[in-house]
């Protein structure tokens, strides 16, 4: 296996008396796209937020590039880019201003041509670049956030329901982009309940149910993971 970039080992998270993650284990290698699939309340977002350091695990370990989320979260945040499900940037700033602001937060300086190139890469129409983001559609906001993630050149990407609310063309563009990034060596961890999308883009899929990994699917010789197989397992869990 390639270099281990993201590792969950016996990860447990509890809110009050409720166990949200129960002995979760997985490893994601460099250049791999890993999708964590599950229904509502399965624990997908909790897993992601644990790696972002906004939720502390009660036991077990979560590491990114060998750094513990409980000890080295500031160092981890310099290495990861995060794409939330619903991208809400600052409405009073333009798309370009938002990108500059967030890059500055990450202590990253990029030239105007670099920013324009990233915006073209995510296919955000040029006329929108200098308009306040309050006028952006959800898809346009999503593209801006992806451009931001690209500009950060982070070796690890955490994506929360990345294609939620995007039109089919935008989803295809997004999937192509993710594959390209992975091919260039980026590690992608995404949580989703979109079985089809996950199968299209992921190298491996972990099926999460009631805080436990109940299935693991991977691309073998095919171009993508078998949707039918994953769908069947997902439906079976949903019916339980």
């Amino acid at each position: 296996m390639q270099k281990e970039m993201i590792v969950a080992s016996s990860l447990c998270v509890r809110f009050a008396k409720q166990t949200v993650l129960d002995e979760v284990n997985f490893k994601v290698g460099q250049g791999e796209v890993f999708a964590l699939l599950g229904g509502n309340g399965a624990g997908k977002s909790t897993t992601l937020k644990t790696f972002l350091g906004t939720i502390a695990p009660q036991s077990g370990t979560a590491t990114v590039m060998g750094m513990s989320v409980t000890k080295d979260i500031d160092s981890i945040r310099q290495k990861v880019a995060y794409l939330p499900e619903s991208v809400m940037l600052y409405g009073h700033l333009t798309g370009v201003e938002n990108i500059k602001y967030f890059l500055s937060l990450a202590d990253i300086e990029k030239s105007a041509p670099d920013i324009e190139q990233a915006l073209m890469r995510v296919a955000l129409q040029k006329s929108a670049w200098h308009r306040p983001m309050s006028n952006y559609s959800k898809g346009m906001r999503q593209k801006t956030a992806i451009a931001l993630a690209l500009l950060r050149e982070a070796p690890v990407l955490f994506l929360d329901e990345p294609t939620s609310g995007l039109d089919p063309n935008a989803i295809d563009e997004f999937n192509r982009l993710i594959k390209t990034l992975a091919a260039d060596g980026a590690t992608v961890f995404m949580v989703t309940h979109d079985v089809y999308g996950a199968c299209q883009v992921a190298h491996r899929i972990g099926l999460l149910d009631n805080g436990k990994i109940v299935g693991m699917f991977e691309r073998k010789d095919q171009a993508h993971i078998d949707t039918e197989e994953v769908h069947a397992a997902f439906s079976a869990r949903s019916q339980q």
Binding site: D74, R77, M88, Y90, L105, L148
Partner: peptide
């Protein structure tokens, strides 16, 4: 409330500094 918190702190190199 605006849904930016996680993105902000995941992006900021030093959260407290922000």
């Amino acid at each position: 409330e605006a849904g930016r918190y996680d993105l902000l702190i995941a992006t900021a190199s030093k959260q407290q500094r922000l």
